[in-house]
Nucleic acid binder design. Sequence first.
RNA 1: UCCGGAAUAGCUCAGUCGGUAGAGCAGGCGACUGUUAAUCGCCGGGUCGUAGGUUCGAGUCCUACUUCCGGAGCCA
Length: 430
Amino acid sequence: MTPVTVAQLTQHVGQRVTLQGWLYNMRSSKKVHFLELRDGSGTVQCIVGLEDVGPELFELAGTLTQESSLELVGEVKAHPKRAGVVEVAVSALTLLGGSKDYPISPKEHGTDFLMDHRHLWLRSSRQHAILRVRHAIIQAVRAFFDQRDFTLIDAPIFTPSACEGTSTLFETDYHDDKAYLTQSGQLYMEAAAAAFGKAYCFGPTFRAEKSKTRRHLAEFWMVEPEVAFMDLEGDMQLAEALLCHVVAHVLETRRPELERLERELAPLERVKAPFPRISYREAIELLQREGHPASFGDDFGGDEETVISKHFDRPVIVHRYPAAMKAFYMKRDPAAPELALCMDVLGPEGYGEIIGGGQREDALDTLLASIDHHQLPREAFEWYLDLRRYGSFPHAGFGLGIERTVSWICGLSHVRETIPFPRLLNRLSP
RNA sequence: UCCGGAAUAGCUCAGUCGGUAGAGCAGGCGACUGUUAAUCGCCGGGUCGUAGGUUCGAGUCCUACUUCCGGAGCCA
């Protein structure tokens, strides 16, 4: 008999099936054991009745421990008390792998303990739900760009120099040369945009800042589209359309997981275009009206982003920050040269920056001056400057942080649960 | 790096005024025909983070260190 998955059981009511999985929990009385079986697709209650299986098998079932792996055969039946729920009346059962003293009990645990057992914690229903939402988000991101004729052009992970020159990088040895783990694929995407028109990359990025907050990881995944002949306005529209598509896809396909996470759905259902757009200057005024001491030239910290985003019922786009606080490749606003043609999308409900991007500087001379002004080594950027020497073109793009997006959509308080094996300031294992 | 908090059973925690340690869960044994973190009874389980100090006596007070948590800066 071919094994079926728990998720498929509703199509097999009245039939005998084989199931393979792990014991999630068990409740017992004198003549009946209730095994809760988990197989990765879901969980189902399996009934082992003394009179159905005989004393030998009944006794074996009684000795099973949490997370033992099993194969069982049984008939799929409607749950006698719960509408729409099925259970399995077991007729045969084989213990495949025992499990002695499984460390994660159904009671509470501390974060550090759970992170030490992250390889096992992934089995619990909450972590399962989060990572399924993560998968749905990634699926939606890829589908969004693929449907719009973007070409996936992944950027390298070893890089010879800093992209932005600001953040701390992880340094590593590369055949007796220094190399750094990438903090962004963007410069490479600009080359890709010149070759393919519309390109995106999706991969891990690394930041070595000694940062320890609920929104930081040393290793995180980023999606970075870059489009030739697109300006800042087009960039904002693209970011807005992407987020709408992603949220709609999760709402459509992962509602049980969101319910498991007790995620309030109304704020997600409001994520529809158009998103409000405010300039940096307007954001400063908004903060001042709220009694937050902020003046032109200040960057926004977590508190400021929260104040701004709480003013709106959906993601808000803040554009045209002072050029002085932004990376060297940002194009200046011709109408106000002290401003950069850049934008950040702030997630609602205080989730802060989930997208950052903008239009890139396409004039060779201006870019050279900017590299010098930022005191970056010109040699390292010669290839990048070639993109301005050979058919320069207006272009724009952005980066979307996957973990912050997962955290927002799942309604979590920390990004550490949004990635299977988080790399944090003090955690490199498991 | 800075500011704050914490460290006691396998896990989550309580521990009063300084008088040598307690619960729930997990584990073991038993009871119970339908349970949903099942319930009920019994049992085993401790170098109180480490090193000093004060004291007749320290889980408790003091000092240093270590680790973790929350936040800041920095960032997506």
